[in-house]
């Protein structure tokens, strides 16, 4: 046998099945804690401000990636934005067709640097447009858990 020898019959090819038995438990972090608590407790979306670079980070960061300042100033950025880009998702993670296609968008909020990736709701795929004004729809306060899913979706404003 040599390096260039090839297995020509699939029956000869041995495959060994196994897994990587891990799960992940992520803390949301210092900036994340403030961001998600604000959504959960007060229903507001906040960004963190770097005064020297004149940027409001969304999602907020605890530091400015440009000048490395620790960011201490936080502002509410409102719940209204515009669709910067979007896609219509027709299949699930496993590749099966979805009964109801999902619209996934990057939503820019005026004055904020960055944006939120989220679902669009209360709108049909064929009605969706880049530049469309949208607004966050929050879950009722009692159902909010401090997660990005506390925002149900964004709807046309």
């Amino acid at each position: 046998m040599s390096l260039v020898e090839r297995i020509t019959s699939f029956a000869d090819a041995k495959v060994w099945y196994g897994n990587l038995p891990i799960e992940s438990l992520y803390t949301v972090g210092i900036a994340g804690e403030k961001f998600f608590r604000a959504i959960k407790d007060r229903g507001v979306i906040m960004g963190s401000v770097c005064p020297s670079c004149n940027l409001t980070y969304l999602p907020p960061m605890m530091y400015c990636e440009r000048c490395f300042a620790e960011l201490e100033e936080w502002v509410e950025v409102g719940t209204k934005g515009t669709v910067y880009t979007y896609t219509v998702v027709g299949v699930s993670l496993g590749g099966a067709p979805l009964e109801q296609p999902e619209i996934l968008a990057l939503i820019k909020i005026e004055g904020a640097h960055g944006g939120l990736v989220h679902r669009l709701g209360e709108v049909k795929p064929e009605e969706t447009e880049i530049g469309m004004p949208v607004e966050a729809v929050l879950k009722p306060k009692k159902d909010r858990e401090g997660s990005i899913l506390d925002i149900k979706h964004f709807k046309p404003a």
Binding site: M1, L20, S24, T27
Partner: peptide, 21 residues
Amino acid sequence: ILTTHWKPKLEYGWDAGVAIS
């Protein structure tokens, strides 16, 4: 504190290769 949890399905089929087959 707030956390998020992820349970990925990390399953593999490794070719045993020429020598190990």
